[in-house]
Design a protein around this nucleic acid. Structure first.
Lengths: 144, 144
DNA sequence: CCAATATTGTTGCGCTTGCAACAATGTCAA
DNA sequence: TTGACATTGTTGCAAGCGCAACAATATTGG
C-alpha cells in the first residue's frame, strides 16, 4: 500500500533538482571567482540591465531575494570591488548599484560559463526541453 | 542587446520555484505542527517505508540530505516524540528510526495536505503536467 | 589474530538566511 | 506646515546548513 511517494512529490523533486543545479553551477565558478549564488544574481541583474537605475529594492523585487539578503550580498560585492553604490539623485533612501569595470570583467567570464551550462542542460533534455520550460514558466507565473 | 537573461535561466527558475513551493507548502503545516522541511522528509520516508529498517544512512541516501542534516532533524523529531531511535540488531554503528504512534498520527494529518497541494499544482499545470514531470524526471536522473 | 582501513552518526565551526526591529527619509492628508 | 504613515536599506538574532573532524564500531588483508 503506497501511502505517499516522496520521490514523485513535485515540491521534493523540484527542491532536489534546484540544489543540485546550484551546486553544480556554483562549482564551475566559485573557486575561481569567490562568488555565491546571491552575489551572482545581483551581478547578472546589473549586467543585463545596462540602464543602471538599479536599487536594492529593484533587485529584491525582480530577483526573488529578501531585502536583507540583497543588502548583505551587495555589501560583499562592494567590498570585493565588483560593484559601487551611488546615491539616488532625488530620493536619499535609495541606493543605486552599478557594476565597476572589474564587475564587467568578471561577468564577461562567468556569463559564458552559465550560458554553456544551460546549453548542456537543454541538450540532456532533448525534445523534452520545450515542454519542460513551458511547464516551469506556467508554475512560476501561477503564483504571483 | 541581451547579454544574459536571468529570467529564462533554468537554474534560477528552478531555484525560485523550489523556494516558493517549500515556503507555500510549509506554511500549510509548519505553524500547526512545528515541522520543518528536513523533518518532513524523514517522517514521509518512515511513513511510506513500513519495513522499518530505516537508518540515518538509508535516509541520507534516499532523501538527498547530508548526514549531519539528517542527524539533527532526527534528534529534533525524537525530542518531539514523533520518532524513536532503536539500535540495529547486529551492527552497533547503525541507529534505526521508526515512527511513534504520535508520528503516525501527524503523518495521517499532514500527508493529505501534501497530496492536495500536489493535486492543486497539477491542476494549475493542466495538460503541461505530464511533459513537465517527464522533463523533471529526466533532469533528476541525468545527474546521478 | 591484528593492524590498517572503512563506515556510521554526532558535533564544533563558520557561513548564510529570514524575520523583525530600527533609523533615515519621503509622502500625504488635514 | 505638520503629524501620521509608508518606504528603503541595515542589523541583531536565532535557526539551519555543509564541511570537516571525531569517536565508536565494523571489515578486510596479511
Amino acid at each position: 500500500m503506497e501511502k505517499f511517494d516522496l520521490n514523485s512529490f513535485l515540491p521534493y523533486q523540484v527542491n532536489v533538482l534546484a540544489s543540485r543545479m546550484s551546486r553544480s553551477l556554483e562549482a564551475r565558478y566559485r573557486n575561481k571567482f569567490g562568488i555565491t549564488v546571491s552575489e551572482w544574481r545581483i551581478l547578472v541583474h546589473l549586467y543585463q540591465d545596462q540602464a543602471g537605475l538599479v536599487s536594492t529594492r529593484d533587485i529584491q523585487q525582480r530577483v526573488d531575494m529578501h531585502k536583507s539578503r540583497v543588502s548583505r550580498a551587495a555589501k560583499k560585492l562592494e567590498g570585493s570591488g565588483y560593484i559601487i553604490k551611488r546615491p539616488h539623485p532625488t530620493d536619499r533612501r535609495i541606493i543605486n548599484l552599478a557594476l565597476t569595470e572589474k564587475g564587467h570583467e568578471i561577468m564577461g567570464e562567468i556569463s559564458p560559463i552559465a550560458s554553456q551550462y544551460q546549453v548542456d542542460l537543454l541538450a540532456s533534455l532533448g525534445e523534452l526541453g520545450k515542454p519542460f520550460r513551458d511547464g516551469l514558466n506556467a508554475l512560476l507565473e501561477a503564483r504571483t
